[in-house]
Amino acid sequence: MEKVLEVKDLHVTFTTYGGEVQAVRGVSFDLYKGETLAIVGESGCGKSVTSQSIMRLIPSPPGRIADGAVQFKGKDLTKLKESEMRDIRGADISMIFQDPMTALNPTITVGEQIIEGIMQHETISRQDARKKTLEMLNLVGIPNPSERLKHYPHQFSGGMRQRIVIAMALVCEPEVLIADEPTTALDVTIQAQILDLFKDIQKKTGVSIIIITHDLGVVAQVADRIAVMYAGKIVEAGERREIFYKPQHPYTKGLLNSVPRLDLDGADLIPIGGSPPDLFAPPAGCPFAARCNFAMEVCDRVYPYKTHLSRDHHVDCWLQDERAQKMLAGVK
């Protein structure tokens, strides 16, 4: 498969009065053409910071990319000038933000906002830009687009506003689409429609998607591969079936156990006890050790090495060490 985006050992920090927050600590992953990669984890684990770092949208100060690289079309995005990044944002890499209402200008019609984005990146007449806008609104399922493009954001429902934001992100035909919690503010019925829309658009355009979410139901519907983040690190990654049916990291198992199961009678939710570590001074070892029922002495002291379980499935956990495996086999 053709590799579209490559994130290598990304570190992002924020300087505050209380010290330096190490929000992202050595994140690495690849994105391939036409696939959907889901980055999951609880709030504060670094998902959104990672996605905003790819787009170079981290406010500086207080934030900065301390180390690492983001390779796209032979360029390291972390080294580009702001003017060069403006040419890439929207045209090559687009982003859908969490709240569609705040992503849209309430004083400008939605048609004008989409047309402005097209003319920013393409040498095109206004008439052709309007035609392209109508085609995109039709693609995302906006009824009567020739009339609706004259309307303001407040004249649309939440689901329709989300479709408008998706249209804005896709109108310049980017190669990569980053969707940060795209269904959080929507009810279940509209969520299903938006997820079906993502799959339909991906089939038609071949766009590669990174979806940021904490909702494993969303992940099960759209993701090809999943990266599980905790305390600024990707602790496990693999194909969807590997993560859902063969999870190896205790945190991944904890996330799956905390999802309601309607197919099992009397199934109880099993919450993950404790709290995430303080990223002002993250632990030297596994960040999940304090909340893990299987933690060993080494877990507190040394961060585990990466264990490859298949071509795509890897996990950072000392339980994968052969000595721990022998110990667990003896317990059984």
Rank of each mutant, 00 (worst) to 15 (best):
E2S: 14
E6T: 09
K8V: 14
K8N: 14
D9V: 04
L10N: 10
L10Y: 13
H11N: 10
H11D: 05
T15V: 01
T16C: 05
G18N: 14
E20L: 10
V21I: 08
Q22D: 08
A23H: 03
V24W: 01
G26L: 04
E35N: 03
A38P: 11
I39W: 07
V40M: 10
V40L: 02
G41Y: 01
G44S: 00
G44D: 09
S48D: 05
V49K: 02
S53N: 08
R56S: 12
R56H: 06
I58P: 06
P59E: 14
P59T: 14
S60T: 02
S60M: 10
P61I: 04
P62V: 05
G63R: 08
I65F: 15
A66F: 00
D67T: 10
F72Q: 01
F72T: 02
K75C: 04
L77Y: 06
K79G: 12
K79A: 14
K81T: 00
K81A: 12
M85G: 04
R86V: 14
D87L: 15
G90S: 05
D92P: 01
L104T: 02
P106W: 03
P106S: 03
T107Y: 08
G111E: 10
E112C: 02
E112F: 12
E116K: 13
E116A: 15
G117Q: 14
G117C: 07
I118A: 02
Q120W: 08
R126S: 04
K131I: 00
K131D: 13
L137I: 12
G141H: 15
E147G: 05
R148V: 09
R148T: 08
H154T: 15
F156E: 07
F156W: 13
G159Q: 07
R161H: 05
I164F: 01
I164P: 10
V165I: 14
V165P: 07
V171G: 06
A179V: 03
P182C: 08
T184V: 12
L186I: 06
D187K: 09
V188G: 13
A192L: 12
I194G: 03
I194T: 03
L195K: 07
K199W: 00
I201S: 02
Q202M: 03
K203T: 09
K204H: 01
G206I: 06
I211C: 07
Q221M: 04
V222R: 01
A223K: 00
Y230M: 10
E236N: 07
A237G: 08
E242Y: 14
E242N: 05
I243A: 10
F244K: 06
Q248G: 11
T252Q: 02
K253A: 06
G254E: 11
N257H: 11
S258H: 04
V259T: 11
L264G: 13
L264A: 15
D268H: 14
G274T: 07
P277H: 13
L279W: 11
L279S: 05
P282N: 12
G285F: 02
P287D: 04
P287T: 13
F294T: 07
A295C: 10
V298I: 11
C299Y: 06
D300H: 03
R301T: 13
V302M: 08
H308F: 11
L309V: 12
L309C: 00
H313F: 11
H313C: 03
Q320N: 05
D321L: 07
K332S: 15
